Amino acid sequence: MTENERDRDAEGRARNARPRDGLGRPLPYGAPGVERQPEGVVRTPGATVNEAQRLLDAGKPFHAHEVFEDAWKSGPEEERALWRGMAQLAVGLTHAARGNTRGGARLLLRGAGSIEAYGTGPHSLDVPGLAAWARELAERVDAGGKPVDAAASAPRLRGASRG
């Protein structure tokens, strides 16, 4: 690919086809990367939570964010803020793991604020636990300024969170 060419998807839309690492960072063309999440997948809420948890546990919060983004875009209007907030939590963890601790902390706090309106949590999500996890991690990364291990810092989406 030349410098002036753009990657395009099947519909002709610009799409970066470079391989990515586990935290979603672009790698050079031809480098081995982590398989990307397919975009636009419509899942049940339970399947969304299960797939996102699998990716978080594997240290792939960027990829989990894409799963939440699909739910945000395809779900019912009354749950869009929930799924957007969940995506913000995953992106916050991504930034914290990449070393952008200040940006990660901001996104974690924004995500916590977005999901708290959902009380104890629909779809078995532990909303209070996730909000507490996000605030604790935001405080820790903002104060410490060091990247975190994405898998070791990943939350439990259902039940008690770990951090």
Rank of each mutant, 00 (worst) to 15 (best):
V34D: 11
K73L: 13
A151T: 15
A152I: 03
R135A: 03
A152E: 13
R106S: 11
V42P: 00
D57N: 15
E35K: 15
G163F: 06
P32Y: 08
D57H: 10
A105M: 09
G129K: 10
R84A: 12
V91N: 07
P128R: 11
V34C: 09
G99V: 00
D142R: 13
K73P: 02
L27F: 07
A52Q: 02
T44S: 14
V41D: 04
G46K: 11
V91E: 12
G85W: 03
G85Y: 05
P128I: 09
A154E: 04
F68R: 02
G103P: 07
G46C: 06
V34N: 05
R162G: 15
H63S: 09
E78A: 14
N4A: 07
L93E: 09
I115R: 00
M86Y: 03
E116G: 01
L108W: 02
A17V: 10
A47K: 11
E79D: 09
T94P: 08
A47M: 11
V34I: 12
V91R: 10
T120A: 08
R102I: 09
F62S: 10
A10L: 12
A154D: 06
N50W: 06
E77R: 08
H123E: 14
R162F: 03
R110Y: 06
R20I: 10
E35F: 07
H65P: 00
A96P: 08
H63C: 01
G59N: 09
V67G: 03
G111H: 02
P38D: 10
G85M: 14
A97N: 06
A131G: 11
R13L: 14
D126E: 07
E79R: 10
R6S: 12
N100F: 02
A17L: 12
A64V: 05
K60M: 15
R158C: 13
G145H: 06
N4W: 09
V91C: 07
N50C: 00
S114F: 01
T120Y: 00
L56R: 02
G113L: 02
P61D: 02
A160P: 05
A81L: 14
E136F: 01
G119Y: 03
